[in-house]
Every structure is written in C-alpha cells, then in structure tokens.
Amino acid sequence: MNIFRLTGDLAHLLAIIILLLKIWKTRSCAGISGKSQILFAIVYTTRYLDLVTTYVSAYNTLMKIFFLGSSFATVYLIYVKFKATYDHNHDTFRIEFLILPAVILALLINHAFTPLEILWTFSIYLESVAILPQLFMVSKTGEAESITSHYLFALGSYRGLYILNWIYRYAMESHYDLIAIVAGIVQTVLYCDFFYLYITKVLKGKKLQLPA
C-alpha cells in the first residue's frame, strides 16, 4: 500500500458517499445516469468475486464489501425508490456498446484464460468506460448540479491517483500490470474535459454549464 493508492481509494469512497448522500438527501436522482451506476455494479461484481476465495487484507475485504453494497444500493435508489425522479429521457447511452467490446477485449487480451482472470479483465476494461453514460447525460442536459460535479471530480481523481500508484509501484517494487495501467489511463483521459470545466467553473462558484 502507498499514499497514492490510499488517497485514490479514499477519493473513490468519497465519490460513492457523495452520490449516495445526494440522492438520499434530495430524494432525487435527477441528473444521475442510472446506466453508469449499473455498469459500476457490474464492474464491482465481476472484479470482486475473489472476495470469497482470496484474502488480501481486512482493508481490501472491507472496501470490496462497501463498493459492492453501495453500488447496488445506488442502483436500487435510482431504479426503485426514487424512480419517479429518474431522467430516462437524457440517460440514453447504449451500454451494450460498452459491455460487448469489453467482453471481446477481455477474451482476447488478458493475463490468463481462466474464468476469474477473464472476469477481472472484463471489469477493468468496463470500468474505464463506465462513466461515459454519465458524461453523455451531462453533455445532453448541458449542465450538472455542483454536487454531481464534485462526485465526478472525486471519481475521476481516484483512477488518476492510481496511475501515480502504478508509477510508484513500478519504481519501488518493479511491479506493473499493463492491462490495469492502459485502462486506467483511458479512464482518466475521459475525465479530462470534465476536469477542465470543473476547475475553471465549479471551483469559481459557477454552475457546470457545457457549451450547448
């Protein structure tokens, strides 16, 4: 464990908590892409199947349980509890166009052709594009509530911090995992446009308005 990975995990935790609180407190999931949340639930389910087979540390196990529980809770809040506030007119990204290529790529490029490893690889590829429905929805509505942009900033920072973690681990432990690194870079790059808007607008107290 290193400071980059720890702050990355904490940023990830913060993002999930911000989103849950926003939906719970405002009793509304307006502006939130349910499709992205479904993709995240799939990502954690396919990645954390080893929860029952391998024990890494208490921290690792607790975080996996939290990510799994919170992702399903978020999907439940969006599609069941507050479904009246779900904006399905703007949440129209075709997630099958993200899931299928991730499946195919996981079957072609992986570290080992075993069920657990293929599922892990699929989850890494899917996570790198899982935010696209949300970013697409923000571009369609042309704006995002500031709480939603804080959520996106924390979520985008988490994998950016993981990139620093991978550099650190390569330098210090000569450990690297190209699949995670390439997917992590793609994932972080997808947020760049949003990061620019967040830093130039939201931090100045303005609303996140995309040029319509």
């Binding site: 995990d9 890494v56 996996k64 570290h111 690297y176």
Partner: peptide, 10 residues
C-alpha cells in the same frame, strides 16, 4: 519486473 497474477488492488 513481474506481472501480477493475484490482484491485490481494488
């Protein structure tokens, strides 16, 4: 450097 098989990251 070796590539990680068992994944210790979240």
């Amino acid at each position: 450097p070796q590539v990680e098989e068992n994944h210790d990251e979240l």
